[in-house]
Structures are given as C-alpha cells and as structure tokens.
C-alpha cells in the first residue's frame, strides 16, 4: 500500500477501489467453497478522511460522518475501558471496524477523531462498496492512530473478519481483497477464509481500452448479506450447514497458512448437486 505519511499524522485520506466482474462469486463464502474467484478493481470508489480534533474534555471518541449516516455514528470508550458504539445494527460494521483498530491503541493516544466517509458509488450497488469502506476506514485509522503497519493483505483479512465475525454479516472474501490490493486477481479460497492470491497482469492497452468501454449501471439498492441468507436458507440442508459452520470455525481458529497447513476436511454431504443450479446461477450472474 502506498503511504505518504509521517509517524504521527494529523489527518489522513484513504481511498480504495470497488470491484466489478466478480466471476465465481459464492464459492468464496463459508458454505460454497472451496473457492476460485476473480474480479476487476475499478474506481473511483470510496474515500475516508480521518483527522484528530483539538477539542478537549470528555471521553476519547471517534465520530463517523457521511451522507448515509444521519445522525453521525460515535464510538466511545465506556467506563470499563471497552470501546463501543451506540447506533443501530445498521451501522454495526462501521462501529466494529473502528473498535477493531482502537482496541490496539492506548485511549490517551486516541483523543478525539473525526471521520468523513464518501463514495462515488451508491450504497447497495453490488460493487463491494461496504467492503471498500471498511478497508479504507481500517487503513485510515490504522495509519492515524496505530502507526500504519498493516499491509493491504492484512487489511483485507481484517476487513472480512470485521464484517463476518464482529458484525455477523454474510459475505465472501473477494470484495475486501479487491479493495485492498486493487487490479485483477485470482483468489483461491481453501479452506475458507484463507486466500491464496495470484495477480492477473493488466497491460496498459487493456486498462486503457476497458477505461473507454466499461459501462456500469446501478438499478436499485441491494443487501448482499440478505441475499446470502436467502440462498443459505433455501438451498442448504440444516445438518450440512451445522457441519460446515464447525469446519469454518475450526479453520478460522487454525488460521491456515499458504502452505496448506491446517487444511479443513471437506464435508462429504456438500449439497452441490441439488444446490448447484441455484447457487451457480446466482454466483455467475452471467447470461
């Protein structure tokens, strides 16, 4: 990741692309793997500006503002030393992203921070915007408050954990990787959520031609996590899901490396035959 910042910056700006052409989607989920997905990162995507404020007094806090956040979301330190937000479930993912960074920073280092989130892409456009926001938010706060030591790959893993573990949403892994590393990538996901990434080179000619010929049309807001839950509920037998959740949990706990150590066993009852038609139709989205 490109960083042009001193050790203790006053204010930072993080930008991240969104993605299109997520080929192989659904196989990067906990119930659809092992996965092979690729995508193309595109921009302009999202922007997060974070700055320290001079206001004194009161508890350390991070205030998030955006046209989509009304009122602003505030994360503060509680009397018992924990970080917590007070908004509805709707903004849980943003709050949890903030908490993820703050939990590793002394409270007196935090002070008062204001964050403004902007996006060139409407929310719910199926372009991985939420993941791009979380990656940018993590990167901005990590740089502002925690020394900015996390790599783009670490930010991708962290953003996925924030979304699926801390905020308990359904999501594959590729949106976070597209936002963090950009370009085009082949991601092999096995065991979930472990990712082995192979960059796909893009020549100058290809980038220029796609820049001239790509058109993206957004129809209406869409909740990806809700569609995931709908597919899971409609197509996956409960017994298989329970087994798969156990495998996923064990895999996440072991945090298998790229050498494949800790590879999770495959579920023999993976219902791909019965589910394949529905899932792959949803996954490919191609016609």
């Amino acid at each position: 990741m490109l960083r042009v910042v001193p050790s203790r910056p006053y204010a930072v700006r993080a930008t991240a692309p969104v993605r299109v052409a997520d080929v192989g989607g659904w196989t990067d989920t906990w119930f659809g793997g092992p996965g092979r997905v690729c995508h193309l990162a595109v921009g302009p995507g999202v922007e997060v500006r974070a700055r320290r404020t001079n206001r004194t007094g009161g508890a350390p806090s991070v205030v998030l503002e955006s046209t989509a956040l009304d009122p602003p979301v505030t994360v503060t330190q509680t009397a018992d030393g924990r970080w917590a937000g007070g908004s509805s479930v709707r903004h849980l993912m943003l709050e949890e992203a903030v908490c993820e960074v703050l939990e590793g920073v002394p409270a007196d280092e935090v002070g008062r921070v204001e964050v403004v989130i902007g996006s060139q892409v409407p929310p719910g456009a199926s372009l991985g915007t939420s993941a791009a926001v979380v990656v940018s938010l993590l990167a901005a706060l990590d740089t502002l408050l925690a020394g900015g030591r996390r790599t783009p790959e670490e930010l991708a893993v962290l953003a996925h954990r924030v979304e699926t573990v801390r905020a308990r949403r359904e999501a594959g892994v590729q949106d976070q990787w597209a936002a963090a590393v950009g370009g085009a990538s082949l991601l092999e996901v096995d065991p979930y959520p472990t990712v082995r990434r192979t960059p796909i080179p893009l020549s100058d000619a290809v980038v220029a031609e796609l820049g001239q010929r790509l058109v993206t049309v957004v129809f209406a807001p869409h909740d990806s996590s809700a569609v995931h839950r709908e597919v899971i509920g409609a197509h996956c037998p409960r017994r298989w899901l329970d087994t798969r959740r156990g495998v996923t949990r064990a895999s996440r706990d072991r945090r298998a490396g790229p050498d494949g150590v800790g590879r999770a066993p495959r579920c023999r009852h993976r219902p791909m035959g019965r589910v394949a038609a529905g899932m792959h139709q949803l996954a490919a989205g191609a016609s």
């Binding site: 990741m1 490109l2 960083r3 042009v4 910042v5 001193p6 910056p9 006053y10 204010a11 930072v12 700006r13 993080a14 930008t15 991240a16 692309p17 969104v18 299109v20 193309l40 990162a41 595109v42 921009g43 302009p44 995507g45 500006r49 700055r51 060139q120 892409v121 456009a125 990656v135 940018s136 990167a139 901005a140 740089t143 900015g148 783009p152 930010l155 597209a178 936002a179 963090a180 590393v181 950009g182 370009g183 085009a184 893009l202 290809v206 980038v207 796609l210 820049g211 790509l214 993206t216 049309v217 957004v218």
Partner: peptide, 15 residues
C-alpha cells in the same frame, strides 16, 4: 457510473 480499472488498491496519504 463511469468506472475505470484501478491497478492500485487502498492508498493512504497525509492531509
């Protein structure tokens, strides 16, 4: 939307 390929991922800069 007018979106173009982005070779770079997340970028952080000081303001």
């Amino acid at each position: 939307l007018e979106l173009a390929p982005s070779r770079v991922g997340v970028v952080v800069e000081e303001l």
